[in-house]
Computed example of a mutant assay.
Amino acid sequence: MFWLSLFPFATAWMGENNFAAVPVALYGLVVLLAAIAYFILTRVLIAHHGKDSTLAAAIGRDAKGKISVGIYVIAVVSALIVPWFACLLYVLVTILWLIPDRRIERSLMT
């Protein structure tokens, strides 16, 4: 929750500075750390419920989560060089998560 609380600050700073390199990189760092926190949360929940649980089956290999973290790492580094490209990568991850994920729905049906 801490990383999510920094979104308004990072977003505002990025907008106020016309998407300058450092604010775009900071925004990327905030979303990267939130993504890492989500990844850790899913691993802890799976460990708590067991590797054979419905939750573990629903989450599976969590390709979306791993791909998102990878793209965020690339975006943070590229933000210092080409900020607009980093913003494009942030939008790409957002679109990736807007596509419905049927894993949980499928695992509950079985």
Score class of each variant (00 low, 15 high):
F2R: 14
F2G: 03
W3H: 09
L4H: 13
L4D: 11
S5G: 15
S5F: 14
S5V: 13
S5R: 15
F7R: 06
F7G: 07
P8K: 05
T11W: 09
A12E: 13
A12V: 15
M14N: 03
G15H: 14
G15K: 12
E16Q: 07
E16V: 04
N18F: 04
F19A: 02
F19V: 08
A21K: 08
A21V: 00
V22T: 12
P23T: 09
P23M: 02
P23R: 07
V24Y: 01
V24H: 03
A25I: 06
L26Q: 06
G28R: 05
G28N: 10
L29A: 15
L29M: 14
L29T: 15
V30K: 00
V31N: 09
L32Q: 03
L33K: 08
A34V: 09
A35E: 05
I36P: 03
I36F: 13
I36W: 11
A37D: 15
F39M: 12
F39S: 15
F39P: 05
I40L: 15
R43M: 14
V44I: 15
V44T: 15
V44P: 08
V44S: 11
A47L: 12
S53K: 03
T54V: 13
L55I: 11
A56H: 04
A58F: 14
I59L: 10
G60R: 00
R61A: 10
K64W: 01
G65Q: 07
K66D: 03
K66W: 12
I67T: 08
S68W: 04
V69L: 09
G70E: 02
G70W: 02
I71P: 01
I71F: 05
I71V: 14
Y72T: 08
Y72F: 08
V73D: 06
V73A: 05
V73H: 01
I74L: 06
V76M: 06
V77I: 04
A79M: 02
A79L: 03
A79C: 02
L80C: 02
W84F: 06
F85Y: 11
F85D: 04
F85I: 09
A86E: 02
L88W: 09
L88S: 13
V91A: 13
L92F: 12
I95Q: 11
I95M: 10
L96D: 08
L96T: 11
L98M: 13
I99W: 11
I99G: 02
R102A: 02
R102S: 03
R102P: 00
I104G: 07
I104H: 03
E105S: 10
E105P: 00
R106F: 00
R106Q: 06
S107I: 02
L108R: 12
M109P: 00
T110W: 07
